[in-house]
């Protein structure tokens, strides 16, 4: 069985109300980088809630790691469009937040405090935030806050990282920088990624597989494998192969919007 598996999943937020997503089946292999794109309100974020166990499906089954999802799992890390850092904590303390919650870190926190701190510092250094550990979030730029937010999502070594439009609020240059950061993190330390985004270039550049979803109720329209060789450099975004992937995806989204 795949690492993440959706079996004909539907979800409506209210009993008998309109469905946010309908009849979704998909498989994600361990270590795969998946991107989900679609127009606004197509239920992309709903997918994330289902996988993280924040919402149970109305119909169908969601399996993560071979087991049906029944509630929040500690093996998932999440980051959103807003960095959502806690303003009263330093960057370092923000990054260490999951270690205060997820077992087994939580109970070992007292004894291994120093070690955990080193881990967080190393993680911050990996995303280029060395020297900013003791700054408060408001002293960081938007891009830096988002880097810290991704560090927080990864600190407890989750096997599945879920990103909900994480770069949506950043300017184009910062966004491309963070693509590379995410690519490097993923290549250094393998984990499964599910990235929800509006940005087709982002999806094609980062993902192994891209799913396009329809308007509400969200269904999966196409699954497209991105066979561009890895490691990918930003240069790849200017190649014809890249452009044709983006083009095909763009056309399918165009069809969604017309209907």
């Amino acid at each position: 069985m795949s690492f993440v598996e959706f079996e004909n999943v539907s979800l409506s937020y209210s009993e008998g109300g309109q469905r946010a997503i309908e009849g979704i089946s998909l498989q994600v292999a361990e270590g795969e980088f998946v991107a989900v794109v679609g127009p606004s309100g197509c239920g992309k974020s709903t997918l994330m809630k289902l996988i993280s166990g924040l919402k149970p499906p109305s119909e169908g089954y969601v399996y993560v790691n071979g087991r049906q999802v029944g509630g929040p799992l500690g093996i998932v890390g999440m980051a959103f469009q807003a960095p959502n850092l806690l303003p009263w904590r330093t960057t370092l303390d923000n990054v260490m937040l999951p270690l205060e919650i997820v077992e087994p870190w939580r109970s070992e926190r007292g004894a291994r405090r120093k070690e955990f701190e080193e881990m967080a510092r190393a993680q911050l250094a990996r995303v280029g935030l060395a020297g900013f550990e003791d700054k408060f979030p408001w002293e960081l730029s938007g891009g830096m806050q988002q880097r810290a937010s991704i560090c927080r999502a990864l600190i407890h070594k989750p096997r599945l990282l879920m990103l909900d439009e994480p770069f949506g609020a950043l300017d184009a240059f910062t966004r491309e920088e963070l693509w590379c950061m995410l690519r490097d993190l993923w290549q250094q330390q393998p984990f499964t990624v599910i990235l929800v985004t509006h940005d087709l270039r982002e999806a094609v550049f980062l993902a192994d597989t891209v799913y396009v979803m329809s308007k509400r109720p969200g269904r999966i329209l196409i699954r497209r494998e991105i066979d561009l060789p890895r490691p990918r450099d930003l240069e790849v975004t200017y190649t014809d192969a890249f452009a044709s992937h983006v083009h095909v995806l763009r056309e399918s989204i165009g069809r969604v919007r017309e209907n």
Partner: peptide, 8 residues
Amino acid sequence: DVLRSLGA
């Protein structure tokens, strides 16, 4: 959501 997904 961030905290709940961690099992808080």
